[in-house]
């Protein structure tokens, strides 16, 4: 089934996609002419496939549960923010705060993301095939952020228990973020995420892993400038 955002209202399209009859076999949708509109495919909750054919605006695929959403273009701020499960695949670049606060699911970005990618992530897996901007994985609590390119300033600032895998350069690390030794278990996680994103040929030995130094967990007067 095809929608055309030049004719159909965004409210109607989202309403349709949010209320799919459980018995319906028609579970594949295309949205044409997204033209940078905001909140496309926000709040989907069923196992359906949606292709957004073009560039989307803010909060695309926000709060997603179960749906497989592909965007053939760029996305604005907050793609897949607060996602619970499912997969969001951006074929272009993503703007800031990609995958923000998301609890689960997988976000794959073929291009770059700008600042604050994975901010406050709570269990999502994010795979960025390009580079990420500054303050990425800020206060990241759980989940994995895989970066095939480089990272901007203050990577992993005030990070909790999320893991960052990166193959390129890190411009600078944020407070309380440090390089970790990659265990066999971590390698398995990384390999499965790369495979899931179609990056089977990537050598996992080129990746470094970063996580929390856990020095800011409890108040310590020596660290007062870092809080």
């Amino acid at each position: 089934m095809k929608f055309n955002l030049k004719k159909d209202s965004l409210r109607d399209v989202n309403d349709h996609l949010q209320n799919i009859d459980k018995k319906s076999n028609n579970r594949s949708f295309v949205i044409n002419n997204p033209d940078g509109n905001h909140s496309i495919c926000a709040g989907l909750k069923d196992e359906i496939e949606v292709t957004v054919d073009g560039h989307a605006g803010y909060y695309c695929a926000g709060m997603n549960m179960n749906a497989q959403i592909t965007i053939n273009g760029n996305v604005g701020t907050g793609v897949a923010e607060n996602m619970m499960s499912g997969t969001v695949h951006v074929k272009g670049n993503a703007s800031q705060s990609a995958g923000a606060t998301a609890h689960g699911g997988t976000l794959i970005v073929d291009g770059d993301t700008s600042s604050r990618c994975g901010i406050s992530m709570k269990g999502i897996d994010i795979i960025v095939k390009g580079s990420v901007g500054h303050m990425s994985a800020f206060m990241a609590q759980s989940g994995n952020l895989v970066i095939c390119g480089d990272a901007g300033d203050a990577l992993g600032d005030s990070i909790y228990e999320a893991k960052i895998f990166i193959s390129g350069k890190v411009k600078s690390l944020g407070a309380d973020c440090e390089e970790k030794k990659i265990t066999e278990k971590d390698k398995k996680i990384l390999k499965s995420l790369l495979d899931k994103s179609g990056l089977n040929d990537k050598d996992i030995n080129n990746f470094k892993m970063y996580g929390s130094a856990r020095k800011l967990y409890n108040f310590n007067i020596d660290n007062v400038s870092e809080y």
């Binding site: 033209d35 940078g36 509109n37 905001h38 560039h55 605006g57 803010y58 760029n74 604005g76």
Partner: peptide, 8 residues
């Protein structure tokens, strides 16, 4: 500010 301003 946003892509939607230039979609046309």
């Amino acid at each position: 500010s946003e892509f939607q301003a230039m979609a046309h």
